[in-house]
Amino acid sequence: MIKLVELGGVFCGRTDELVNLTVDDIEDVGSSLIVKIPNTKTKIPRIFVVTDVGNMLELFRKYLSLRPPHVKHKRLFLYFKAGKCSSQPVGKNTMGKIPSVVASYLKLPDVADVACYTGHCLRRSLATLLADAGVDITTIKRHAGWKSTTIAEGYVENSIENKTKIANQVLVGTTTSAITKTVNVSESNPSFLPSNINFENCTNVTFNLNVNK
């Protein structure tokens, strides 16, 4: 249950939305999970997709298979007690404490200070992971359900990865330019990349190959 909450938290971000998540809100389409969050804080329904990276789908299916057949409600997250899954749904307080449980297990810094690892850690993790991946603030807001750019930026942690990128930009500098080079390749002209094209200190380089048969 804790693993699945962490997974949902990283994708969704709000523990209160996870608390109210039901089995009907998740559609298993084989290669991925389509998760619908109908009741959100902003009153705007959201949808996110979980792909099969790191056996995430296997984790969800295994957890769902442990669900007792006599459970009358449809809440997804249930307590696991005495070696088996109970019918009692996980409450908001328990859900909010899960980040501190994970922090203790991983022996993270300041783990003794419970206030450092609340449910908001999931929301910060979501925003920071997207920012580190180069996702723009508009996409982050749309995915996480934020209306305010200021609030969304406030959740993005000053991670070491972000700081490293900034340091490289300060020291090396960045330039944005588009260079188009057309090379005709045939059986009589097998060379692909002319020797007079050099790439140095480049990032975000894209090669477009057009094959005409």
Rank of each mutant, 00 (worst) to 15 (best):
Val90Glu: 02
Asn201Ser: 12
Thr174Trp: 01
Glu27Asp: 09
Phe11Tyr: 12
Ile160Arg: 09
Asn55Trp: 07
Val35Gln: 02
Val183Cys: 12
Ile2Tyr: 10
Phe207Gln: 02
Gly119Ile: 00
Asn189His: 12
Lys62Gly: 14
Lys41Gln: 00
His143Gln: 15
Cys202Pro: 00
Leu4Trp: 02
Asp16Cys: 08
Ser195Tyr: 12
Arg46Val: 03
Leu76Asp: 07
Ile47Ala: 01
Lys41Ala: 03
Pro69Met: 12
Ile137Lys: 06
Asp132Ile: 14
Asp24Ala: 11
Ala178Phe: 13
Leu193Gln: 10
Lys181Trp: 08
Lys163Ala: 15
Leu108Met: 08
Ser188Gln: 15
Ile34Cys: 05
Asn93Val: 14
Asn168Thr: 10
Asp132Trp: 01
Thr180Cys: 07
Thr94Ile: 05
Lys36Gln: 13
His70Ser: 15
Pro194Lys: 02
Asn201Leu: 08
Leu193Arg: 11
Cys121Val: 15
Phe77Asn: 02
Val29Gln: 14
Arg75Glu: 02
Arg61Val: 06
Asp132Thr: 07
His120Asn: 04
Lys107Arg: 15
Lys165Phe: 04
Arg14Ala: 10
Gln169Val: 10
Val111Gln: 01
Arg67Phe: 03
Leu66Lys: 11
Pro194Glu: 05
Lys213Met: 09
Val211Gln: 05
Thr139Ile: 12
Lys81Gly: 06
Tyr155Ala: 07
Phe60Ile: 06
Arg67Gln: 07
Ser100Phe: 02
Leu209Gln: 00
Asp16Glu: 14
Asn196Val: 08
Val170Ala: 12
Ala167Gly: 07
Asn189Val: 10
Lys72Thr: 12
Ala112Asp: 14
Glu200Gln: 14
Thr164Ala: 14
Leu66Pro: 07
Ile98Gly: 04
Ser87Arg: 06
Cys121Asn: 03
Ile44Phe: 07
Arg124Glu: 03
Ser104Gln: 11
Met56Cys: 15
Thr206Val: 13
Met95His: 08
Arg75Ser: 08
Thr176His: 14
Ala131Tyr: 00
Lys36Val: 13
Asn93Pro: 08
Gly8Asp: 09
Tyr63Trp: 14
Thr150Ile: 14
Thr51Pro: 06
Lys181Thr: 14
Lys213Phe: 11
Thr206Lys: 08
Thr206Gln: 04
His73Ser: 08
Gly173Ala: 06
Phe48Ala: 07
Gly8Ala: 09
Leu78Ser: 10
Leu209Met: 05
Ile166Met: 10
Gly119Glu: 03
Leu18Gln: 05
Ile34His: 13
Thr206Ser: 11
Ser65Lys: 13
Leu33Gly: 09
Gly91Lys: 07
Glu153Thr: 09
Ile47Met: 09
Thr51Tyr: 13
Ser31Gln: 05
